[in-house]
Measured scan of single mutants.
Amino acid sequence: DLSALRVEEVQNVINAMQKILECPICLELIKEPVSTKCDHIFCKFCMLKLLNQKKGPSQCPLCKNDITKRSLQESTRFSQLVEELLKIICAFQLDTGLEYANSYNFAKKENNSPEHLKDEVSIIQSMGYRNRAKRLLQSEPENPSLQETSLSVQLSNLGTVRTLRTKQRIQPQRTSVYIELGSDSSEDTVNKATYCSVGDQELLQITPQGTRDEISLDSAKKAACEFSETDVTNTEHHQPSNNDLNTTEKRAAERHPEKYQGSSVSNLHVEPCGTNTHASSLQHENSSLLLTKDRMNVEKAEF
């Protein structure tokens, strides 16, 4: 173990290094160091905050020279020094078990990766560091076993998940096959086929009936047209017969005018059967003409 005197000496050296690497504005270890034209180094955030307070150039807090945003430059070497100082402080805390008085939040800088452990060898070769390295080497064999167990647990979990997924996939297939086998029997399929065939026959029977009705309507229309044509021909046949009657009536009127007047009046009210309204109107006109002729003949006879 380190003596108290040596611990104090190391602590004083760390404090001196820390004062050199402090920012003059925030009085902390410089984060993202930036250098000016006057070779003074500050935190990048502190300098941008200072420049944004005034429009135009501002003055350096140490030498009062003008500073602009374009004049600022990043210093990589200074950032490396800060990183190495942080590593020294971490090693000091691990070796002594004491917390550094002016320690900052170094938890963000710590890294437990194997590459980081290899890099620590180049920091300080001390008894405390050696003991700590031995402890780490002793704890390393235990870690692979834990990793193997965790991997086995994960693989077993994956296997159970896969088996569950396969079961879920197989179950719908089985149910679907069961439904297909038990849903419709052979008799049901035959009945469905016969039902479809009967429906098709009914459709075939319905369509000819409609065509037959249309044919019957067409035949009825044709018969009505033929009947009207026969009526017209009958009226045409009746007209010459009426003319013959008129000639006979004229002759009778010349011989017996008194008797014919009474008979002509009675004939006005008689309509021949089986004739249309057109034929009756023609008869009325003929009878009126005959009456006028008879009157003329009677007057001539009187004179």
Results as ranks from 00 to 15, higher is better:
E142G: 13
N65S: 08
V7I: 10
P240I: 04
K192A: 08
N105G: 04
G199T: 13
S75C: 15
E142F: 07
K167Y: 04
E120S: 13
S71N: 08
S280F: 07
I206L: 06
K19Q: 05
S152K: 10
H256F: 14
T275V: 04
A301P: 08
E8F: 06
K69Q: 14
K49F: 02
D39F: 01
E140A: 03
E8K: 14
Q209S: 03
K44Y: 03
H269L: 14
G182R: 04
Q93R: 06
N102T: 12
L164Q: 15
N12S: 14
E142R: 13
L158G: 09
F106Y: 12
E22P: 00
N12A: 04
C43N: 00
L62E: 04
Q93T: 05
N131K: 12
Q125V: 02
L86N: 06
L86D: 06
E8L: 10
A253K: 15
R77N: 14
K37A: 13
A133F: 11
Q53H: 01
K87H: 09
S266A: 08
F106P: 12
G262N: 09
R77E: 13
I20M: 14
R251D: 10
N15V: 09
I123M: 14
I123Y: 08
R77W: 15
E99N: 09
E202D: 12
N276C: 05
L217I: 09
I206R: 11
E249K: 05
K300T: 10
L203V: 10
L289H: 13
F78G: 11
P257W: 11
S139E: 13
F45V: 13
N15D: 13
I124P: 11
C60S: 01
L203A: 04
F227S: 13
F45C: 13
L62I: 00
L5M: 02
K250A: 01
Q261A: 14
G56Y: 01
S35L: 15
E249L: 08
R70S: 15
S3C: 07
Q80G: 04
M296W: 06
P33F: 00
E271V: 13
A223T: 10
Q138W: 12
E74K: 02
G199W: 13
A107E: 10
N52S: 10
T36M: 06
R162P: 07
L146G: 14
S216N: 06
L155T: 14
S113C: 10
P57R: 08
H40T: 00
Q73G: 12
E9N: 05
V121T: 05
N105I: 14
S228N: 13
